[in-house]
Write a protein that binds this DNA or RNA. Structure first.
Lengths: 172, 172
DNA sequence: CTTCTCACTGAAAATGAATTTCATTTTCAA
DNA sequence: TTGAAAATGAAATTCATTTTCAGTGAGAAG
């Protein structure tokens, strides 16, 4: 599909940055989840969680793996992959699909419901909020007798920068 | 992700069934597109288009390939795959992603803008219409200076049937 | 303290859908 | 009719995802 070498993916956060407090809380959530399902807490899992929380972007498993390796080069791709699933299970992360064939995750803890607008030229994305969309989920679900759990709403288009580049192709 | 053996995917059409007239028109559109990009019309491509138009569901390449083979067992997967891309190029088909890892296509010609609600238990889906969602695309695009081209909106949940099955597990 | 049992880990292999390759066949304009 | 260009489909490849497996480690029970 798209080949997106390095993409900027702006996140609009409720908090300007992740506080130490939030990291601790998130870690608690993970630890409780691990206990609940009979798994163990490990240094690797904590390292991965911390790396994940420290970025605000929409990360693929591969990207997160690279970040994690800066902290501990011994942590393998498989462990990152499995830990991301765990984070998703306990609600700390959620999968976002941008239709470019790669699964991405974003923080979910303490975040408002939001949606994505994706540039089909450069792959960059911005987030936006819309209460109407959330209400629509409820309403449509009721009408068709579905117990709704979530929704995805993505808008595709071309961002301002890419349109400018199109207009003025070679600025040398 | 999900394993969806046989899924019902209801489509709500503006036309109750595809008329001969529509098939001819669609074929014209394809032929004109082929000429425009310097490709040739072939019996295979026409057969694939007809099979595609005759179903109302959201078809994966594999599913369409199976349907096509009923008409002409000699047509291969690759050709179906490539023809679906052509249909998408000329606006007769469009890709829908239901997040189960398989790309699906649906008719686009003469269809109203619509969205999907997908059952995460059985994989069935229903379509719904919402003018608000279409307006939202315009509005959000304007606000963030994107030239929008399309959007996807999917609601996930559990359908009535699956909820009933949960409640009464083994009816023998 | 020792043993035993699970879970963990990460390299490597497997999976599976999407895509490309390539030798052969078909189309179409001249 | 003919030749260049495109089409075809089986097979091979790609690539992200997922599973397997053999070795490691941590904690519980004796």
């Amino acid at each position: 599909m798209l080949s997106l070498p390095f993409m900027l993916q702006k996140r609009i956060d409720d908090q300007p940055s992740i506080s130490r407090e939030m990291v601790r809380e998130a870690q608690d959530i993970l630890h409780r989840h691990l206990k609940r399902v009979g798994l163990k807490q490990t240094a690797q899992r904590d390292t991965i969680l911390r790396s994940f929380l420290e970025t605000r972007d929409h990360l693929s498993t591969d990207e997160l793996h690279r970040l994690v390796q800066k902290k501990d080069a011994g942590i393998g791709y498989t462990t990152v992959y499995r830990t991301l699933k765990l984070l998703a299970e306990c609600g700390l992360a959620s999968e976002v699909a941008f239709h470019d064939g790669i699964a991405r995750y974003e923080h979910q803890y303490n975040r408002r419901s939001h949606h994505h607008m994706v540039c089909t030229e450069c792959g960059s994305s911005v987030e936006f909020f819309s209460r109407e969309v959330d209400q629509l989920e409820q309403e449509i679900g009721r009408r068709h007798h579905y117990a709704t759990t979530r929704h995805t709403f993505q808008i595709y288009g071309v961002c301002e920068d890419c349109r400018k580049k199109r207009a003025a192709p070679q600025p040398v």
